Amino acid sequence: MNHLRCAGALLAVALLSGCVASVAPASATLHGDPAHPAQTQAWVDTKLYFGLGLFDDAASGVSEQRWRDFLDAEVTPRFPDGLSVVDVYGQWQGKGQTAPERLRSKMLVIDYPDTAENRAKVEAIRAAWKQRTGDQSVLRVTQPAEVSF
């Protein structure tokens, strides 16, 4: 009887495997929208890291309202089709420092076609932040991305 149960279980697994294999691959839910293609070519994923101020002193540095104002004025007009913001903890230790500097930070994630115009928009965002805050840098990490909506 045990052999029959095992055979039945194997048959059920085989049948279910066949069902899964016959399911069509998922497709994009948005059709005909060039800003949200079903499949992309030559897109990139860019992450920008912005320091807001010392981690242990939430009253200093850039407030949440100032950050949202920056997004509304500098980022969204350049990339209105969408972006993501993630709260992150940043840390670094400069030469000659005895302890790391801990920062409240934001990571901005933007996926877009890799064009000279879009790269210039990203650089304009970085420059605008440095001008507004006096920060020396905004870390940028860009990688090729396969995107589907």
Rank of each mutant, 00 (worst) to 15 (best):
S27T: 15
Q41C: 12
I110L: 07
H36Y: 14
H31T: 14
L52M: 13
V86Q: 05
V13Q: 03
A12I: 06
Q41T: 14
P77H: 04
D57S: 14
G8A: 04
V138M: 06
V13A: 14
S27C: 13
L4I: 12
R102T: 04
Q91E: 06
N2R: 14
R66M: 11
Y49R: 09
F149Y: 12
S17N: 13
S22P: 04
G8M: 04
A73G: 09
Y89W: 03
W43Y: 15
D135T: 05
S63H: 12
R140V: 08
W92F: 01
A145V: 01
D69Q: 13
L48P: 10
L52K: 07
A35I: 04
P25L: 08
D81H: 06
T40V: 05
W67P: 05
S105Q: 08
A120V: 05
W67T: 08
A124Y: 07
D81Q: 09
A73E: 10
T40S: 10
G51L: 12
R66P: 05
T115S: 15
D56L: 12
D72V: 02
V85S: 03
A14H: 05
S63E: 06
L108H: 00
P25T: 11
L30K: 14
N118L: 05
T76F: 04
M107K: 14
K121Y: 06
I125M: 06
R102P: 00
E64P: 04
A7E: 09
Y89R: 11
R68T: 14
T46A: 15
T133F: 10
A124F: 03
L139M: 13
G94P: 02
K106W: 01
L54F: 15
H31V: 15
Q97T: 02
P34Q: 10
D72K: 07
P80A: 00
F79E: 03
R78H: 03
V109L: 11
H31F: 12
S148F: 01
L108F: 06
S22N: 12
R78W: 01
W43I: 08
Q136L: 13
W92K: 02
P37I: 03
W129C: 04
L4R: 11
E74W: 03
A7R: 08
C19K: 12
A7V: 11
G18V: 02
V20Y: 13
R119A: 14
V86G: 00
A124S: 12
R5D: 06
P37K: 10
F70A: 00
V88N: 01
Y89L: 10
L11S: 11
C19I: 07
V141W: 02
P77S: 01
V13Y: 02
T133V: 01
L16A: 14
Q143W: 03
V138C: 04
M107F: 00
